[in-house]
Design a protein around this nucleic acid. Sequence first.
DNA 1: GATGAATGAGCGTTCATTCAT
DNA 2: AATGAATGAACGCTCATTCAT
Lengths: 212, 212, 212, 212
Amino acid sequence: MIDSPKPKRGRPPLSVRPVTRDRILDAALEAFSERGFDGATVRQIAAKVGVSDPALYAHFKSKKEIFEALLRLAGPDLLANAGVDSASKETPMQIALPDMFGKIIATWSTPRARAFASLVLRMGPDGLGNMLQDVSTRLRPVFESWQAQGELRGDISVEVAIWQVIGPLAGLRITYLHGDASSADIAHATKLAKAHLELIAQSLTKSGSQVK
Amino acid sequence: MIDSPKPKRGRPPLSVRPVTRDRILDAALEAFSERGFDGATVRQIAAKVGVSDPALYAHFKSKKEIFEALLRLAGPDLLANAGVDSASKETPMQIALPDMFGKIIATWSTPRARAFASLVLRMGPDGLGNMLQDVSTRLRPVFESWQAQGELRGDISVEVAIWQVIGPLAGLRITYLHGDASSADIAHATKLAKAHLELIAQSLTKSGSQVK
Amino acid sequence: MIDSPKPKRGRPPLSVRPVTRDRILDAALEAFSERGFDGATVRQIAAKVGVSDPALYAHFKSKKEIFEALLRLAGPDLLANAGVDSASKETPMQIALPDMFGKIIATWSTPRARAFASLVLRMGPDGLGNMLQDVSTRLRPVFESWQAQGELRGDISVEVAIWQVIGPLAGLRITYLHGDASSADIAHATKLAKAHLELIAQSLTKSGSQVK
Amino acid sequence: MIDSPKPKRGRPPLSVRPVTRDRILDAALEAFSERGFDGATVRQIAAKVGVSDPALYAHFKSKKEIFEALLRLAGPDLLANAGVDSASKETPMQIALPDMFGKIIATWSTPRARAFASLVLRMGPDGLGNMLQDVSTRLRPVFESWQAQGELRGDISVEVAIWQVIGPLAGLRITYLHGDASSADIAHATKLAKAHLELIAQSLTKSGSQVK
DNA sequence: GATGAATGAGCGTTCATTCAT
DNA sequence: AATGAATGAACGCTCATTCAT
């Protein structure tokens, strides 16, 4: 009870080491994206940072809190905003669409964003699902405006049109733009995205006429 | 002789079903799809089966082996084959494509297939990625044949064409056809898939020329 | 995640060993009485039983539950009931009082009861306090009856009379009848208790008259 | 010269009181009495002082040392001396005894003393036991002198006599005079103590003989 | 084939303590 | 004199797995 004969615990001498919240979050993103929330351990994260595990608890209250900070911080922005925000009602669809695509692919190609994609993936269906729903919702007014201006053909629903754009992107993200992706993967994804865009842009404009 | 005291004909009650490999795999699929490999516990799986956890070790050597059996068994077939195999070189693209789509969506709508989708998702990028690669590979000869016969326009690469078809399907799978999907989700996915098919079929045939 | 290369865990060969709830409770009583709830560790308890710590969790859900089972099981009975129940209104005080004393001391002298005394002590003031309150409450009707029959002098309150009896007992319990008590301690306590009884019995009967 | 711009006379505000050993000991007494040595944490003590935990190590070498300082400082004095020292051989027993009682009760009623009682309680049997032994030892010469002078009847041993006095006090201390005691508890204890004294004083003087 | 009891490994977390500032 | 950040130890508990029945 009162006898602790060898009190050799405590912080050992130290040279230099700045362990910040950010470095922890980086390490956690890496760990969680590699093994999922349950598969990653606090000790693994700490090891990536280069400290012992209790050190993390000076910055975060729990493993779960680290995870949530990660979601809150990097989540919506990294994944979706980038390209979506660049699409505005004023810009003609034929110009805005390629622009949006380019920006989205660029954003998703960064290591952080790719690691984050893996992480979200591992959260189960709700993770990616909600993300896509979110993008879809935010794109809707822009597409509606394009349709009103005659740039988007009127015989297909806005929702279908959005899905034409978003759907393959989601596939690309999962297939090529994840944490382990090589630069070849990334290049390939970019190529596919561009090719997809060209085709889809045509479909969304006049198609109907040709049926004639 | 004519009426034996213990008829026992027909199917026996089986109120106490024996614990078979299949029932374990069903339970494991459910557990793994809900919480991932690390999040699911052997005890949870056993509980779903209705036995105690060591009972599973009479059928499988380890948790990992259960998981792998699941992948081997249900994996490729459930996810991809269905539709892919129905696409043959003899059938014209305009007919084969909708048929394939229909079959894929139908297959993916079953509870088992949806649970499996969640599971694969949680395995990280390699899971879904490899799956799509696999489908792509098997579709290639069919598409090449279509292109040779002039059914698929020649100015786009086969790979891009395949991606046009496969990409949105992957998105749909993730967004709507997972373990927790409601029947509304499923209906919605079906609608989107059909709309997508109509547009894409046009794009893949003549597109460019007619714009003129 | 899925790789556990050396699955050498599991229960090693075993000769004979019956680990029951009771043996755990005995060990826990010992540990808790020696170091208190916070000072005792689950591993210590398990070591006393001769098993590894997770083994305890097959019988109890948590450390706290072990503690509570201990309180529920041994608590009130071991500590108080013994003597108190033997005091009835029909028996004359001069006979019932020594009898009660003897029984209480005898009960409190058992190793279990003494260990339990140490445990209750370490719970803080409420532990012993409540216990004494309890005894006091249960003794009250008996004392009231004695007072009505003229066996207990009328010029002192029942409460004070009870305290005369109970108070020194509490002191004895703490001073001599705890977990570490030697047999000499116990003998000493018994002697003191008897001497106390003789004096107190006189005080409670006529005293007043003699003052005259 | 006559009125200096910064008077600074009298007691300085001291709104930010310095962290002294005393304030740490106060906080520690509170913490230890509430949760015991193992249950209380250095962080809790520091929080009560209003500083961070390493600050305490500027004043004490370890948690254990704080605890021991507490025992050394407040221990024997607070608990026993008060009344005991006031009993001297010269004073007649009939006067000294009530006086002693009064002083002991008064001393034990202070918040510090009550907190300390809780603390000692939680240390296990040795804590209170040793304390009572100590008091008993120091009272012995006084009682022996009283017995020699015929004030204490000769047919009971000094030890028993001392126990008659001390025993119920120990009970009172535990039951009513602990850290959490309300003022009603304290008043009650005082009443019981006085009643006890009156009875016991008679017993210790002539008792047996006069019954006749 | 199934279970209860057990195990070693290891997890998330807290603790007392120390170093550098 | 005090703090923020860090540490090794160890705690309570869960996990996958195994043995004996």
